[in-house]
Structures are given as C-alpha cells and as structure tokens.
Amino acid sequence: MSEGTALRGALVLEEVSITSRVGARLIDRLSLTVAPGTVATVMGPSGIGKSTLLAYVAGFLDRRTFAAEGRVMIGKERLDTLPAEARHVGILFQDPVLFPHLSVAGNLLFGLPRTRWRSRAQRRARVSEVLAQAGLAGFEDRDPATLSGGQKARVSLLRTLLAEPRALLLDEPFGKLDAPLRAEVRAFVFAHARERGLPTLLVTHDAEDAEAAGGPVVALNGPGGVRPPCD
C-alpha cells in the first residue's frame, strides 16, 4: 500500500446537525477537522446517533427518518451534495460485510477502480500483491465464509482501501471481535489509514479504541450535548 501516501485533504465537518423526524436532536452543530493520517474519535453510548453521523458523512442517511444540515468536505471539496458513490469515502461496519457470493479476490476486485487498473492480469496481480502484504497470500479463491474473524476484518479493510477512498469511516469495526484479536485488527486498520494519509473518523463506545486512535476525541452526550473536541 505504498502508493497514495501523498497528502490529501482533511475531512471537515462544519456545523453538522442531525434531527430525528420524531423530534429528537441527535447531533447539534458539530464541527470537526480530521487531518490526513489522523484518527478522530466520536464517543458515546449506543443509540446516541454516532452511526447516524457516519451515515450522513458517507451519504446513506435515511432522509425519511432524519433531517440533517451542515457541510461535509474533503479539503475544499464539498461532499454532502454528492451521491454516496461519488464521495469516495470508505466505510467499515461492525461486521466485515464481505459479499458472500464472491471469492476473496472477487470482493477485492469489486473495489479496484477500473480507471487505474485496466487489464484482467493487472487487476489480479494487484489483488494478489495486497493480499500477500497483509499476510493472506494465496487466499484469492477462498470463500469469504470460510475465513476467520481476523482474516475477514483484514479482507474488508483491504477491499475498502483498494477503492482508493479519500477518507475512512469506522463504525465500531472492532466491536464484535474478542480482546486479543481486537487489538491486532485495530493496529492493522490504524496503521494502514496512517500510512495512506487518510483522515479517519472512528465512532465507538470503547475508551480503549479512542486511546489507541490517538487523535482528537468528541464525546456525544445525548440530545443537545456535544463536548468540544479536546486533544
């Protein structure tokens, strides 16, 4: 994953507010700048609207259930007016969400941009290369259902990174892993995000995650309550 280390723009949230249509204000004028290569953390108990915030940034917010305003930008380019597929923002969920009908290579090829990697041979070679770098050499034709939890998590991250995102969103991606694996996967994800200079936004309810992230931390305290970021 050596290419793409060129410094890209920061992920900027400007006065983002999200209100549930039934009336509760989940996020109130949240402003946050995530510099390239840093991992910012949004903390808070479950049900507070953390995932909703990521859905807004990525472009998946259910507009029937939520009203939202505020700018989302990469550097100076505005994202919140673009459809999800044009934002180039990678997202990892609590589950690896590997496509069950595709092999490991098929999953990775799905994200690889056709514009940069054209020929079939080139694309396969690129996939094999990143698999080998991640300690998964020879896994190309494996059924994702047969992988271990840690292997699935790694394939999921590789898939996201191959799509060359400009920012990375992490929706409690370590929440379902048990303790030893959790630290390993976390280190793997953060290392790749930093190496590629990606601005990364992590939501979690686990203080250990926030500590490991080492970036700014925002605590959501329920309707109306946002503590300013502190380093």
Binding site: G59, A86, H88, F93, V97, F110, R159, T160, A163
Partner: peptide, 16 residues
C-alpha cells in the same frame, strides 16, 4: 436484505 451490502458497494464507487 442487509442494507450494508449496498452501502459498502456504493462507498467503493459503485453506482446504483
């Protein structure tokens, strides 16, 4: 169908 499949694909740049 788990909506995260479609979200994951869209986040990788796949159109609708």
């Amino acid at each position: 169908l788990d909506p995260r499949y479609a979200m994951t694909a869209a986040a990788m740049g796949a159109g609708r």
